[in-house]
Design a protein around this nucleic acid. Structure first.
Lengths: 123, 123
DNA sequence: TCCATATTTCCAATATGATGGAAATATGTG
DNA sequence: CACATATTTCCATCATATTGGAAATATGGA
């Protein structure tokens, strides 16, 4: 990933509504969530939601598929991974003790065993 | 970390110049880099740089200390860790196989043994 | 075909962010 | 104190993002 693409992704996430949408989809997993359901859960006006979904989608952070009358959105975990990797590239100038805890926390989150939420909260 | 704070951090990073600054500091490690040195390396006009450093600082992503005539900026690895953790909170709805690779990549980055750059590039 | 549901597109008003020149402040030096 | 260096603040301009109402499009069902 290069700088420009990362900028697009981060600025897409740098918006309260879009970040809420993205997190909802990250937590929802592969099945994803229909646009209408997102609007209901986050209390968003349909057109605003649509614009924001479009921005996230254009940034590559989420994907969409049609299912009957609904359009289902889902997080793109590969894009998310690339983005986080980019942020941590050459992290801390080779001093492991600085950024090791960072990896620890994230490894726990990736374990996805149900305990990761509380462990993250306390971190 | 709550939604609003994460939004501030992400939108601070969602800008080409600021993201370049932040990565430079993340790679520089704890010693940090003087403002003037950042300006030189990234070819930025002093006042624009100052404004952007201020935004990153206000978002908590970087810290500053004065050293003689210079002001030295350094990445705040704790804030970075909290931000990445927030993005991955309750990741993927409990399906480890989806976001496990994400943790793998980041664990490698956190290892900081000098090989992490190439490993990240290929990921 | 007609209607209901789901989502997007169009549009205009408003707000927020980015930029750089010039001046101001702070520190160190002779 | 006078001067050079380092960085910030002030300010005005310009560009971009956000918003929601209303209309348009797409799908499925009677």
């Amino acid at each position: 990933m290069e700088l420009k693409a990362a900028t697009v992704s981060l600025s897409a996430l740098g918006h309260e509504g879009r970040l809420a949408i993205f997190r909802l989809l990250v937590q929802a997993g592969r099945p994803g969530v229909a646009a209408g359901e997102i609007a209901r859960r986050l209390a968003m006006v349909p057109n605003t939601l649509s614009a924001n979904l479009n921005i996230l989608s254009h940034a590559g952070l989420i994907g969409a598929r049609r299912e009957g009358r609904s359009i289902i959105y889902a997080a793109d975990y590969g894009a998310m991974s690339a983005l986080l990797g980019f942020l941590m590239e050459d992290c801390c100038g080779g001093a492991p003790e600085i950024c090791a805890p960072l990896g620890d926390i994230l490894a726990k989150a990736a374990a996805c065993d149900g305990t990761c939420q509380t462990e993250l909260e306390t971190a």
